[in-house]
Write a protein that binds this DNA or RNA. Structure first.
Lengths: 216, 216
DNA sequence: GCCGAACCGTAACGTACGGTACGGCCAATC
DNA sequence: GATTGGCCGTACCGTACGTTACGGTTCGGC
């Protein structure tokens, strides 16, 4: 043991290692299928020996890659719970737009495909990691916003989890599954803005308190 | 090339061939990953030679399997467009429950995983077939219902496609992606009924005409 | 009863790929 | 300036799997 195994460690990869992981990501996006150790080594201009020394085995490399990309996405800012309806609307719309941007990005598509294929065999737990850093992470970040909205009398719901899942559905709709299955669905910046706004309006129509108590 | 190639033909597979395809499905569900030609032959009690004669190659076998399962699912009945709000509600709820049942079934999960993994490489078009017989097929079947609802003054929308996508999101929410990524999410009959009702109510809240002209 | 076709079971072949070993290069250390 | 350690490039090994080939068996038609 010992050595430089970054497999399951919480340690951050070195700059060189990050470059390798970026090579894995780019290869995943471009070639999709041909994610072989040899191809990674060639793309990253490193030897296979180094790959195995650093990441243990293929699974370790993939896990590290997923973690690395997750850390990059997670770098998003923390919204402060706000109180008036306009700020709530903006906050929700921001979440929606961010989420749509993420799930429609080539990197996310390739990564989710990989994790889903991995979930088919019961070897690794890439699926769990992706879920943890995607769907569940955004729920955790959105919950305080929703609950602050409820505190302020702007929203009405019993269970914040259920409310979140409705929002999730209104935002994502059929986008992710279509992209994963290879449908050529392009989301430009304009479409994302429009879809985010529509989803937010629909969510507020369902969960917003009618006639939000005029504070005057 | 004559012979019995059922690869891309529209012909229906023989009973024996159907048994083979069912073996593929069961193997896909149980073993997930180990979908090897040898395993299929063993499970179906047939020789590999026969597999190749009937389906051409591995890809042909997979394509035939997806088509076979699609034909089975497509056997659902055709709802007749109806006119009053109760019938519309029931129809929508029926669609929602059916869809939730399908996407949470082990067969659908395994099939979608396969098609998604296939979409990663650009060889075949299993993803297209699955989309065609899943997401797009249900849209085609639901559209007349939605438009009949609009004709009857029960629904209000500009674009039936947009309305459908909202309904799709309200029904599916995060269920499919979580299941595909290996999350242990079990949907019992009760949950499906409840979720279908909730999604339908929400959809009608968004797209239903307020105070649907009391006919008395 | 015989023939040929279809099919089963299994062995064999070629290739792709995960993992390992080794020789050479370069940079830091003494 | 020799030594040591980290790393690159590549050759190599074992295995898994798609695909093909072949001997044996069953069965319908003459």
């Amino acid at each position: 043991m010992s050595a430089t195994r970054n497999t399951a460690d919480t340690e951050e990869p070195t700059a060189r290692q990050q470059a390798v992981l970026d090579a894995v990501l780019s290869l995943m996006v471009e070639e999709g299928d041909q994610l072989t150790m040899t191809a990674v080594a060639r793309r990253a201009s490193c030897s296979k020996e180094t790959l195995y020394k650093w990441f243990g085995d293929r699974d370790g490399l993939l896990t590290a890659t997923v973690r690395w990309q997750a850390a990059r996405v997670r770098a998003g800012r923390y919204d402060r719970p706000t109180l008036d309806i306009a700020a709530l609307h903006d906050s929700l719309k921001g979440f929606a737009a961010t989420w749509l941007t993420v799930i429609s990005s080539p990197t996310s598509i390739a990564l989710n495909r990989l994790a889903i294929g991995d979930a088919a065999s019961r070897k690794s737990n890439l699926g769990r990691i992706v879920l943890e850093n995607g769907r569940f992470a955004i729920a955790e970040r959105l919950r305080p916003v929703l609950e602050a909205g409820r505190e302020a009398g702007l929203l009405a719901f019993d269970d914040s989890e259920t409310a979140f899942r409705t929002f999730f559905g209104l935002v994502g709709r059929d986008v992710q599954i279509r992209l994963l299955l290879g449908d050529s669905l392009t989301l430009g910046r304009g479409e994302i803005e429009r879809d985010a706004a529509r989803a937010t309006d629909q969510f507020l129509a369902l969960y917003g308190r009618k006639t939000a108590a005029p504070e005057a």
